[in-house]
């Protein structure tokens, strides 16, 4: 008898009668869907999951975003400094007079930043891709963008570049550049955190963000 549990388990499985390999009829994913249609379908799907979806013009998006976040009662907005879109945010926030939400940069590792993270109001990240069917954003956290930005604060603001919206999840996974080795963490997000564990009554923001604000960049 093999010495290790692993070898004993595998040996038992190998002793089992072999079955003919069932046919493999995996559909080959199609090319990315044209942006316009997919964006509208994504918007509808996300809205159905109680996300708030808005469009932003590519030109001057950060200033416009700042305007739209006013009056939401947010005191701060966390962001990651090393992302390609961070300079636009910093510039827009430096441009006007100081008013909430204040733009606050993530610093160091989670061990350094945890206390500030858990008291923040809101955070902004980017979606690496999105799929209109079934209506998900694909977040790809990594060295430039902490994964907890999109989870811990009660409001998650997410930017979705229009050209990264695919028709289906199959297409997004195949065409979105998610080739092995995969990043340590990929998350599909379809709306604000929710639960129906009490009498199947839907409630939002049980552990993750209670609001998901999606901005599609056109």
């Amino acid at each position: 008898m093999p010495e290790h549990a692993r070898d004993r388990i595998l040996a038992r499985l190998r002793r089992a009668p072999r079955e003919a390999q069932p046919p493999d009829d995996a559909a080959t994913p199609r090319a990315p869907a044209p942006g316009g249609e997919a964006a509208a379908a994504l918007e509808a799907a996300l809205a159905a999951m109680r996300a708030e979806v808005q469009r932003l013009p590519r030109e001057g998006w950060a200033g416009e975003l700042r305007e739209r976040l006013r009056g939401r009662g947010l005191s701060s907005l966390l962001y990651a400094r090393d992302t390609p879109w961070a300079p636009a945010l910093e510039e827009a926030w430096a441009a006007g007079p100081e008013r909430p939400p204040a733009l606050v940069a993530w610093e160091g590792t989670v061990e350094d930043f945890r206390d500030r993270l858990f008291v923040a109001d809101a955070a902004i990240t980017r979606a690496e891709a999105a799929a209109a069917d079934p209506g998900v954003l694909v977040l790809r956290p990594g060295p430039a963008e902490p994964r907890l930005l999109s989870l811990v604060p009660p409001v998650h603001v997410v930017l979705v570049p229009g050209e990264r919206i695919f028709g289906t999840l199959e297409e997004a996974l195949a065409g979105g550049g998610f080739t092995p080795p995969l990043p340590a963490n990929l998350v599909l997000v379809s709306g604000p955190s929710k639960t129906a564990d009490i009498e199947l009554t839907l409630a939002f923001g049980v552990h993750g963000p209670r609001e998901l604000l999606v901005f599609i960049l056109e």
Partner: peptide
């Protein structure tokens, strides 16, 4: 709402995980 795809621990340079 969430589908987590976990392919490893925090990598070099990752701020969290």
């Amino acid at each position: 709402t969430y589908v987590n795809l976990i392919s490893g621990p925090r990598r070099a340079g990752d701020p969290d995980g």
